[in-house]
């Protein structure tokens, strides 16, 4: 019986790992730059609608967000449609006027970004836009995703 000697390569089979930290750092820096830490805790649920002809808001400093959608009650459950500005739910629609007016005084070139759930009814949205008109914040933006 002849023995077969296993052929083994003489070259090293290690994957060179010295460049790994560089690669990882590159990814790290990418994510650090693109990350926006969540500035508000969403109390309403917003599924964006989609559109094709959209524009990007370049100056983020000018933007103030208004969220409209069904309230989050528990996991997987949604309540009535509510309006949220900053961190709180605004129950009194009339109060939006003063809130937005104060914001407008701070930032005269304010853009109001309306982040509205796609299944909302238009009645509440009309009320909110009417309040915005009274407040004088006329530049608005209906937030939508890009349609693919």
């Amino acid at each position: 019986m002849a023995h077969f000697q296993k052929k083994s390569a003489k070259t090293k089979q290690d994957v060179p790992t010295s460049a790994m930290p560089d690669v990882v750092f590159m990814l790290l820096i990418f994510f650090m730059v693109t990350t926006v830490l969540r500035e508000v805790e969403l109390k309403v649920q917003v599924n964006y609608s989609e559109a094709e002809n959209i524009e990007k808001i370049e100056q983020k400093r000018l933007v103030s967000y208004v969220y409209i959608g069904p309230e989050r009650i528990g996991p997987g459950r949604a309540g009535e449609t509510k309006v949220q500005i900053d961190d709180a739910i605004v129950d009194d629609i009339q109060a939006i006027r003063t809130i937005m007016y104060d914001k407008l005084l701070e930032q005269p070139r304010l853009i109001v970004s309306l982040r509205i759930d796609k299944d909302s009814d238009f009645g509440l949205i009309t009320d909110v836009t009417q309040e915005l008109r009274h407040a004088g914040t006329l530049r608005i933006n209906y937030s939508t995703k890009r349609e693919i």
Partner: peptide
């Protein structure tokens, strides 16, 4: 890297811009 991966939300700051008419 993992921390930033988890906390990242790619923001949708796109939408349809409009100017409301004044009252």
């Amino acid at each position: 890297l993992i921390f930033f991966l988890v906390t990242t939300t790619i923001n949708v700051d796109t939408g349809i811009g409009l100017t409301l008419p004044p009252i």
